[in-house]
Simulated assay, not measured.
Amino acid sequence: MKGSVRMGRVLGVPLRLHWTVPLLVVLFGYGLGSRTLPAGVPDQSNATYTLAGLAGALLLLASLLAHEAAHAVTARRKGIPVKSITLWALGGMTEMDRPRAADAAFLVAVSGPLTSLIVGAAAFGAGIGLDAISSWQVPAAVLLWLGWVNGLLAVFNLLPAAPLDGGRVVQAVMWWRTGDRDRAERAAARSGQVLGMLLIAVGWISVLYGVWSGLWLAVIGFFVLIVAGAERQRARMAPALRGVRAADAMSTPVETCQDWLTVERCIEDVALRAHHSMLPVIDFGGHPSGLLHLPRLARIPAQQRETLRARDVATPLSQGATCAPDDLLEDVLEKLSPGSGMRILVIEGQRLVGIITARDISRIVQRHALRGTEGR
């Protein structure tokens, strides 16, 4: 996810924190310290409420991490590669490869909400016990709040709509019963779109009635709607892409720019007649060395274009998407980083042999539809 920084590893999985995590801590800490705790445990100092609110927000962050770590651990036990865990303002996400079997998909999906329920029950029980045997009312109230929040988190995540865990559970069960993964993914994604629209509607209605927390609900709904739409599109394309090699989808020949050219020469000789918004750059040996994004070239001031070389403004090849001609297109797209764009360089050995763009993917899907075999 863009805007996140790496913060070590959790159980061997890279952990990333999005810039919105401090916002999450502040919002929940403020709500807990300024409203929930004063209402439940009155006559305490402001410092006590502030510290307790901060502690509760950090404990909530830790419980979100436990939820995502459960997904990651279960996936690894089922042989599914896990790339990273990212925490952000709307919770967390675990980036992993797609499960190859319905039972693995079910276990991975259900492990997160189950962990939240366990954490919630443990916190709630600890809060009741602490309140009964001691005078530590504020810590007990924080634990009770943490228990309720984790319970609500588990219930919300179990709603039967992708990308929520409940949607993944329904998808896995439908996949197991019908044997049709694509159909199961489309159904779960449709449910996600419906849920997203409902959350947005309820959120805005709440705001109109003066309940400003509805804005948060609308933001969650918007996120669910966008992700569900993308997943539905991917599920519709999957049958057309299955079994297709990168070599069968790529466009040739590929327009390239020598990396030693000045930006001015690159624009005049190559970019102005380019068919794509991205240009591969090649070194003296003819090997691809990076990627030039034309919008970035356009932003370079005119006085710098005669001194800067193409290699100076190119994105390193390691940060782009590449594959071999014999790689299956479905696997290539699955491993595509979210921010890399739909442009894949096809490299054989050290030689650039083709490029795959969104237009190439669309062409394959259209041909598949003309044969009358597209999944509905």
Rank of each mutant, 00 (worst) to 15 (best):
V5C: 02
R6P: 00
R6Y: 00
L11Q: 09
G12K: 10
V13M: 07
H18W: 01
H18Q: 03
W19A: 14
V21T: 02
V25T: 10
L27P: 02
V41K: 05
T48P: 10
T48S: 14
T50F: 13
L51Q: 00
A55E: 11
L59R: 04
L59C: 13
H67I: 07
E68S: 08
A70K: 04
V73D: 03
G79A: 11
I80E: 10
I80Q: 12
P81I: 06
V82T: 09
G92I: 01
E95I: 01
M96A: 14
F106M: 13
A109F: 08
V110Q: 07
S111P: 02
G112R: 01
G112S: 09
S116D: 01
S116F: 01
I118M: 05
G120R: 07
A121P: 08
F124L: 15
G127K: 07
I128D: 02
I133K: 03
W136D: 14
P139F: 02
L143W: 04
L152F: 13
V155D: 06
L158N: 06
P160A: 06
D165N: 11
D165K: 08
G167C: 05
R168T: 01
V170N: 05
V170A: 15
Q171A: 13
Q171C: 13
A172E: 05
W175L: 12
W175M: 09
W175T: 08
T178C: 12
D180G: 02
R181I: 00
A184K: 07
S191E: 00
I200A: 13
W204Y: 09
I205R: 10
S206W: 07
S213M: 10
G221I: 00
E231A: 11
R232C: 01
R242N: 15
G243W: 09
A246W: 02
V254Y: 11
Q258G: 03
T262W: 09
V263R: 07
E264R: 15
R265I: 05
V270D: 03
L272V: 15
R273L: 05
P280A: 10
P280L: 09
P288H: 03
P288I: 05
L291A: 09
L291I: 14
L292W: 02
P295S: 12
R296G: 02
A298D: 12
R305W: 10
L308C: 04
R309A: 12
V313K: 05
T315K: 10
G320C: 10
D327M: 12
E330I: 15
E334T: 12
L336H: 12
S337V: 02
S340D: 14
G341K: 08
M342I: 14
L345A: 14
V346K: 04
V365S: 01
R367G: 14
T373P: 00
R376H: 09
